[in-house]
Amino acid sequence: MSNHLKFDIYNLDLTNIQNDSHLRFFLLGMSSRAVILVEDIDCSFKLKNWDLPEDQTQTQGDHSGKVTLSGLLNFVDGFYSCCGEGRIMIFTTNYKERLDPALLRPGRMDMHICLSYCNASVFDQLAFNYLGLHHHHLFDEIKQLIEVIEVTPAELGGS
């Protein structure tokens, strides 16, 4: 995607960001045409403040030296995020339900794409993309196995 658009790509590891100010500094320092990838956002830090009562949320800046939910939300769609020609942010997670609903709302995360396990049609596409094959005598057997076991496209492609 970044090659096609001629955008720079940044892999942002939130565990290496010291606080909200550092996150903002990172955003301002990147190029204006960028793809920002945040992998496993559910594991990066606590996006819900489970220690506070339910009526208190982490909406005010945290001065304890940690990135806060508020800081991340401002990074995604705050004042500083609009600087530049265009930025695409990609977040990955294995547990969408662990993310705060404020992070998932439209305008922050406009597209939610589930990359699930393979089925027969995904297998057909992978076989064509990787091997240039439309048919093979083992395809029917493989497709029957795919219906029984859960295998990801990455696992299948690496086999």
Rank of each mutant, 00 (worst) to 15 (best):
W50G: 10
G86A: 04
I41C: 03
G65T: 02
T92F: 05
K46R: 12
A102M: 02
D110G: 08
D40C: 02
S44C: 14
L104C: 13
E39D: 15
D100N: 09
S64Q: 13
V35L: 14
L47N: 12
D40P: 07
P53K: 02
K46T: 07
S64G: 11
Q56W: 09
G61P: 15
I113G: 08
C114G: 12
L115W: 05
W50D: 13
L104W: 01
G84D: 09
T57L: 13
Y95T: 02
G107L: 07
K46E: 14
K66L: 11
V76C: 04
V38I: 15
F45A: 08
W50C: 10
R87T: 05
C83N: 12
V67N: 05
C43E: 10
P53H: 04
H112R: 10
G78E: 00
L73E: 02
V76L: 15
R98G: 00
F79I: 13
Q56V: 14
R87V: 09
A34R: 04
Q58T: 01
S81L: 08
Q58G: 15
D51G: 14
D40V: 04
M111E: 11
I113Y: 06
D110L: 10
N49V: 00
L115D: 03
P53R: 01
S81Q: 06
P101C: 04
F45G: 01
E85A: 08
Q58W: 10
L47Q: 10
C114Y: 13
K66G: 05
P53N: 02
D62V: 11
S70R: 10
K96V: 13
D110M: 09
M109Y: 02
S44N: 09
G71Q: 05
G86F: 08
T68D: 13
T92N: 07
D42T: 03
K46D: 15
D51T: 11
K46P: 10
C82I: 07
Y95C: 04
L69F: 00
E54I: 10
E54F: 12
D62F: 01
A34F: 00
L99W: 03
L115R: 09
C43S: 14
V67D: 03
R87H: 12
N74D: 13
L73N: 02
K66Y: 09
H63E: 11
P106Y: 07
K46A: 14
V38C: 14
N49W: 05
I113M: 11
F45T: 06
L103T: 08
K66S: 11
Q56D: 05
G71P: 02
D77A: 11
R98E: 10
